[in-house]
Computed example of a mutant assay.
Amino acid sequence: MTMVPLRPFLVCLASLLALFAFVTAGLAAPPLPRDKGLPITVQAGASVLSIESFDENTGTYRATVDLRLRWNDSRLAAPADAGGAPPETLRGSAAEARMKDIWIPPVRIANQTGEALRSEYGLRIYPSGRAELLHRVTADFTVGVDVQRFPFDRQKLTIEIAADTLTTAEMQLRFDQSDIDFSRPSANAELAGWSIGLIDLKSAPLPGWYNGSHARIVAALDIKRQPGLVVASIFIPLLASLLIPLLAIWLNSMEDGVFQVDTYEMVNIIIGGLFAVIALNFTVYSSYTVLSVGDNTVNRLFALNYIGLASALFVNILFSRFNVIARLFGPYVQEQAYVTLMWTIPTLILVLATAFMLAAYV
């Protein structure tokens, strides 16, 4: 009995299976609707149903959103005598089964991170060949956070609708007034500590290979921080700590060019203030890690605190401990110079602190 060599047989079988899989995949994936030419226009919009959380330290938020896509495909059109028929409406598993038989725009939410906690589909096909796909998804999304105007800042919770497998020469994402009307937050959408605004749609193509580009639409939900609790817990202690270096200057007095309070006591106040500011610094940055990087109101006020403490220490050592001005120019000049600094330093600190707060608010 003649034996067939096993290895060539397995190689031939694997090749046949691969060819079958390739042909099956080609049949299972409907081609692009090219009857009206390229690029295919797909209208896109997104609405926010609910927001569960927003972590500005990690730059992520969890929400339930509806992604809507609309396009025309003449292969889906009904016969002419069915022009007045209602659209074919499918939901859940029925919609997913129908989606396998028709062309679906290869669109994804590009800033989604991890697996979706919930993913459901709804599909409508109109007799004219118009198709509408609704994708409801609950997931975590990444977002850029800008705290330069903290605590009066606004953030953008973005939904990036991207078609990164087709170039803009093959498919384009567009939106019109109906998509703008659809793209809005639900009346029940709430987020503790924030006021919910409107959704802005913007076209932002992605660069591709060989000077190509991929269509992308960014839906950005505007939220505004409610500053009441933040001002009470962070800014009142920060502004109060600015009084420590001022007290170290004001509590001393001078008669005939001689200071009445020992330098040691004033320096103790300044060192105590330094430890208080360091403790406040640690507490704030532990709760708001995002504030520790970049230019923002909190970092400016911390810097102003350190500068104020350094100025008070410098004044006390220079004037009270070593009497440098008195030795160089006499006690009268030292007394007048001290009085000048006693009001100049607080004025500068007050002006700068007010400017920092107004720059964040305006």
Results as ranks from 00 to 15, higher is better:
81 D>V: 10
55 D>P: 02
75 R>W: 04
105 P>N: 04
42 V>E: 08
93 S>H: 06
116 A>I: 04
61 Y>V: 03
31 P>C: 00
44 A>D: 00
100 K>S: 13
25 A>K: 07
41 T>D: 08
97 A>N: 11
64 T>G: 04
79 P>I: 02
28 A>N: 05
66 D>E: 11
109 I>P: 00
104 I>A: 05
40 I>E: 05
30 P>Y: 12
69 L>P: 05
76 L>Q: 14
105 P>F: 08
129 G>D: 03
54 F>M: 14
33 P>L: 06
116 A>V: 08
95 A>C: 07
36 K>R: 14
58 T>I: 09
25 A>C: 06
65 V>S: 07
102 I>W: 10
34 R>Q: 13
126 Y>M: 05
51 I>T: 01
83 G>Y: 09
59 G>D: 06
112 Q>L: 07
114 G>Q: 01
112 Q>K: 10
44 A>W: 03
90 L>D: 12
26 G>T: 06
111 N>R: 03
100 K>Q: 15
87 P>V: 04
70 R>S: 15
75 R>E: 03
35 D>A: 15
23 V>M: 11
52 E>T: 12
85 A>Y: 06
23 V>C: 09
32 L>H: 00
73 D>G: 09
110 A>R: 10
86 P>V: 05
59 G>W: 08
105 P>T: 06
96 E>K: 12
89 T>Y: 13
80 A>Q: 14
63 A>W: 02
69 L>W: 04
90 L>G: 07
126 Y>T: 00
41 T>R: 02
25 A>Y: 12
96 E>A: 15
92 G>W: 07
22 F>S: 12
49 L>F: 07
71 W>Q: 02
23 V>A: 15
127 P>K: 02
89 T>F: 11
70 R>Q: 04
37 G>W: 09
109 I>S: 00
32 L>F: 12
74 S>R: 13
21 A>W: 11
46 A>L: 15
25 A>L: 13
29 A>N: 15
36 K>D: 15
55 D>A: 01
69 L>D: 02
71 W>A: 04
73 D>S: 09
55 D>V: 07
23 V>L: 14
118 R>N: 10
94 A>Q: 13
59 G>K: 07
119 S>P: 01
86 P>M: 09
40 I>V: 15
30 P>D: 08
38 L>E: 04
73 D>Q: 05
120 E>R: 11
109 I>A: 03
124 R>H: 08
33 P>V: 05
109 I>L: 15
124 R>Y: 06
61 Y>E: 02
34 R>C: 01
38 L>W: 01
41 T>G: 00
85 A>G: 03
